[in-house]
């Protein structure tokens, strides 16, 4: 009985996996397509990072089952995200202070 219930549970998820797979392929096509539009650099970076974040969210939520995970993993990830933001922001903030205006644009 329990095994049958587990089978049903997994087969329900199968559809989800295929939908995410197709969505990821489509979003990849969109990212590449948008790059041919030659948008201004800040806009291009924003669009590309938004699409990449959606893709990463789909992989994490569905393939890595984060959508139905235990609290302890969320705690680990929140802490990781916090330190990741600090790691990314700190060195770059020092640069922005030294330059007037946004470099590299």
């Amino acid at each position: 009985m329990a095994e049958n219930a587990q089978h049903e549970d997994i087969s329900k998820h199968m559809g989800q996996y295929y939908v995410v797979f197709v969505a990821l392929l489509c979003l990849t096509a969109v990212t590449v397509g948008v790059s041919y539009l030659h948008l201004t650099r800040p806009l291009a970076i924003t669009v590309a990072l938004i699409i990449a974040s959606i893709k990463a969210g789909l992989v994490a939520a569905v393939f890595m089952h984060l959508i139905s995970e235990r609290k302890v993993i969320y705690a680990v990830l929140i802490l990781t995200a916090l330190f990741f933001i600090i790691l990314l922001a700190l060195p770059n903030l020092t640069v922005f202070e030294h330059h007037s205006g946004m470099p590299g644009t």
Binding site: T31, A44, I45, A48, A52, K55, A56, A60, F63
Partner: peptide, 20 residues
């Protein structure tokens, strides 16, 4: 979980390196 993470890293690397 490890394998999906490796995929996830590439999802960011590809546009950052190749497209932008």
């Amino acid at each position: 979980l490890y394998w999906h993470f490796v995929d996830l890293v590439w999802i960011f690397l590809f546009p950052s390196l190749y497209l932008l």
